[in-house]
Amino acid sequence: MSVKTILHELEGCTDSALLNDWHVVAYSTELEQGRLLPVTLMERDLVLWRSDSGEVHAWDDLCIHRGARLSKGCIDRDTVVCPYHGWRYNDQGNCVLIPAAPNEQPMKKARTITHPVRERYGFVWVSTGTPEKDIPVFPEWEDTSYQKVHCGPYTFRSGYRAVENFMDPSHFPFVHAGVNGIYDNPDPIAPYDVELTEEGLVTSEVRVTQPYGDPREIPVIAYYAYKCLRPLVAYFKKRLVIQNPEDQHKGNEDDRFCTFLTTQMVDQQTSIVRICCAMNFNPQPTVEDVRRRQDIVYEQDAGIVDTQRPERIPVDLRQELHHRSDLLGQKYRKWLQTMGITYGVF
């Protein structure tokens, strides 16, 4: 059996649209020097580590020698040491020492399987193929008037259903009653537009009433503008208008709250959502206030989204039943289908 066959065996997803894309697999802060972090991306086991140069590396979590997990080993003198026979790999992935033959130059083929990796927006992005596009843009990241708060990780079953849910304003009054919507008085969702652009799917603003729409904990009218940037990366920017006259001093008309959401598909039924919120309020809420609210909302989401069956999202619109208020979800499913995605979809 050739090595290639083993890799195919280890690889769960064969859709080029997913393989040749960037996927968030960790927060940058998780990668302290000296730590080997095992992660799984679409059933492929990877090990992440940060070398003395400060760079992050993403390799298949397997030693080319006998397939043992490198993540069970350790980092010593800026090399990764395999736990099985002590083979050592430098930050280029080249084996620099085979302890059973210490005076021999290790063979050229003694290399780990390395993958492109980038750190951006406080996340670690990996591709197990050849990325066709750059990492999608998070416009507020460079804008210093926005405070950024990372939240999560939140575990969902279906990654796509988690993304679709993130872009669905009509569940707010039910799943997030009292927070993002009013159970007894749900907002009718006015028709909105969805366009497929260079960036991805982009909507016009969707208006909703939120009794507790942001960390300030005051009733607001929120106008959501969504972007689905990649199959597993989405974003919204919401414009906030404070409802009560007596609360007006707590904000101003330029107030915005954004969320950049990433999804790591571990396998077809397990996903990890990591988000970064950006807001330009004055005064800014505390990091704890932001996280407390996000934790509530995403926990409520997972409670429902994880009951959706099948976990694999149906991309044929004849399956399940759609309404015009789900236009973004419909376009999202069609988009996945057009990209030829089969992994995790029905």
Binding site: P191, D316, L317, R318, E320, L321, H322, H323, R324, D326, L327, Q330, K334
Partner: peptide, 29 residues
Amino acid sequence: LEYSCEEGLCGACEARVIEGDPLHRDSVR
């Protein structure tokens, strides 16, 4: 074809018209 609600409520079966004078009865647009 793609379709879902079959009542003019969802927008799934939208198609482009090249020629003709259509009568619209949906609530999507």
